[in-house]
Amino acid sequence: MNPEGYLVLSAILFAIGVAGFLLRRNAIIVFMSIELMLNATNLSFVAFANYHGNLDGLIAAFFVMVVAAAEVVVGLAIIVAVYRARRSASVDDANLMKF
């Protein structure tokens, strides 16, 4: 199988994730962009696994999913704590420290 199409799709998804991280201002959406990047990577893992005909990439996808889940737990806890203290989840408002 030619993985090219899947890889291009994965790169596009990853780029959308990076763009979302850079452009969006709500911490939750920024965090969702990171999840999108992880899932884009999963797609490329699976495509490469199929191309190479081994299972390593498929297993990697499972690891990434578990790690992403753990990240959600920690990340949302931090975002919620910040939101409760400031009544805002905008990353622009987190500006007490500069340079």
Binding site: A27, I34, E71, G75, I78, A81, V82, A94, N95
Partner: peptide, 16 residues
């Protein structure tokens, strides 16, 4: 507040 802000920045940039 500084501490929580630092955690948020560290988390988002670290995950990226």
């Amino acid at each position: 507040l500084l501490s929580q802000e630092a955690a948020l920045k560290y988390f988002l940039l670290g995950s990226l």
